[in-house]
Simulated assay, not measured.
Amino acid sequence: MAVTSDPTTWPPPNYVNPHTRVPLILGVNDTTTTLMVIFIASRLYGRSILKNGLGTDDYIMAIAAVVALSMGIQCAITTRYGNGHHLYDVKPEWVIPYGQLTLAVNSMFPTAVSLTKISLCLTYLRLFPSQTNRWFCYAVITYLTLWCIAITLTNVLQCIPVASYYDPSITHKRCINWKASLVSTAALNSTSDLVVYLWPALYVWNIQLPWRQRVGLIFVFCAGVVVCAAGLLRLYWCTLYFKAWDIFWVSSVIWTLNSVEVNVGIICGCLSGIRPLLAHFFPRFFSTTNSNHTGASSARNPHSQSFPFQSLSGGARSGPRRLSSEEDLETRNYAWASTGKPKDEVDLHNGEGIEVITAVDVESWSSKGGGRRNTDVSSEELIIGGGN
C-alpha cells in the first residue's frame, strides 16, 4: 500500500535507522557554513595585513556572517528533532523544539540576507562612482532595511501568542496566512537577489579588457547567480510545502536551500576582497594582468610599458590618456585618485562609466620604500582589489 496522508497507510515508526535526508542537510549546511567562515575570515584578515583598514561594508558583512553561522548551527541541531525525517518517523516530543528552532531561523533569515546585500551595495558605491549607481545603491539599501524590519517582525509575530506557532497544545491563537507570508517573502527576496547580485555585470563588461579577463571579472561579481538560483528554487519548494502532508521531509529541502542562499551570498560578497590577500601570499599565481602579459617586454625596455585609460562609454570629448611608466610609479599596488574637484578631473558619462578627460595622479597605498620600479597595475586589479 502506498504511503499517503492517511495515517492508516503509514508504516510503523522507525526510530533506530530511519530513511532520512539528514546527510543531505548536514552535507550542504556544514560545507557552505565552513566555506563562508573561511572566506569572511580571509576578507577581514586580508584588509588587516594590507593595512587598508576595515570599511563599513566589511563590518556589515561580518555581522551577516555571525548571523549566518548561528543559523547554520541551529540547522544542524534540527536534524536531531526530525528535520529530514518522514512524518511517521518523528517522535511527538520533537515537535516543539523543532518548531522553536524553525521560528528562530526564520526570524534571522531576513537579517542575514539583507545585511549581505547592503554590504554589497556599499562595495558597489566604492567601485562604481557613477550617479546612476549611487541612486541605485541608496534606493536598494533603503528597501532592504525596511524589508528586513517588516519581515522579521512578521515572522516573529505571525502567531499570537508567539508560543502557539510551535506548541500545538495552544488552541486559542490568532495567526496570519502562513502560505501567503512565506511565498511573498521568498518572492521579494529572490527579486532583490537578482537585482543586487547581477547589477555589476554591465559595469564590468564595459571595462576595456581582453574578453577572457572580462569574463573572469564578471564571474567574480556575478557568481551570486548561484544565490539567485537557490532563492528561486526555495520559492518553488515553499509552494510545494503547503501542499504536502509529509512536512518534515519536504521542508528539509527548504532548509538546505536556506544554507546555500545565505552562506554562498556571503562568499560571493567576499570574492572581490580576497584577491589582494591571495596576491600577497601567492604573487606568482595572482599577479596582475599587465605583469603577466607585458613582463618580458618591460624587462627588455623598462620605459616601453604604458596603460591606456579607455573610456567606458561612447562619446568621449577627448581621446584616452596614456600613463607611461616614467610617471613615477614606484609600487605594485595603486589606487586611482583625482587631483582636484571630481567634476574637473573625471566625467561621469551617462552614468555608465568613467571617462578620464584630464590628468590623474597615482597614489601608492602599500609603498614600503626603495626597491626597483614596478609598473604592475591594471583595471583588473583596481576592480578585484576592492577599489581601495
Rank of each mutant, 00 (worst) to 15 (best):
V3M: 11
S5M: 15
P7C: 11
T8Y: 15
T9L: 12
W10S: 04
P12T: 07
V16G: 00
H19K: 14
P23Y: 00
L26H: 06
G27Y: 01
T34M: 12
M36F: 04
F39S: 02
R47H: 10
R47F: 08
I49E: 04
N52Y: 14
D57W: 06
A64G: 15
A64W: 05
V67M: 11
A68N: 00
S70M: 14
Q74W: 13
Q74N: 14
A76Y: 07
I77F: 12
T79R: 03
R80H: 12
H86E: 12
Y98W: 10
L101Y: 00
L103C: 03
L103N: 05
V105L: 05
M108E: 06
F109P: 05
P110Y: 02
K117A: 07
T123M: 08
L127R: 04
S130R: 01
N133T: 04
R134E: 01
W135A: 10
Y138D: 03
T145I: 05
W147K: 02
N155Q: 06
L157A: 05
P161I: 05
S169A: 13
I170L: 09
T171C: 07
H172I: 11
R174V: 15
K179N: 11
K179H: 13
S181K: 09
L182H: 07
V183R: 03
V183Y: 02
S184L: 05
A187Q: 08
A187N: 10
N189H: 02
D193G: 00
D193Y: 00
P200N: 01
L202I: 10
L202T: 07
L202Q: 09
Y203N: 02
I207P: 03
R212K: 14
R212T: 15
G216M: 08
I218W: 11
C228M: 07
W237S: 15
Y241N: 01
A244S: 12
F248Q: 05
F248D: 02
W249P: 00
S251K: 01
T256P: 02
T256K: 02
L257Q: 01
S259T: 08
N263F: 00
I266Q: 06
S272W: 07
I274P: 00
I274T: 06
P276N: 02
L277A: 11
F281T: 14
T288N: 12
T288A: 13
N290D: 14
T294F: 13
G295H: 10
R300N: 10
P302Y: 01
H303T: 13
H303N: 14
S304W: 09
F307M: 13
P308E: 14
Q310G: 10
S311G: 11
L312W: 01
A316F: 06
A316K: 03
S318A: 12
G319N: 13
R321Y: 10
L323E: 08
S324W: 11
E326G: 09
E327K: 11
D328L: 14
D328N: 15
N333V: 14
T339I: 13
G340R: 09
H349I: 00
G353V: 03
G353Q: 00
W365D: 08
W365H: 10
S366P: 06
S367T: 12
T375I: 08
I383R: 03
G385R: 02
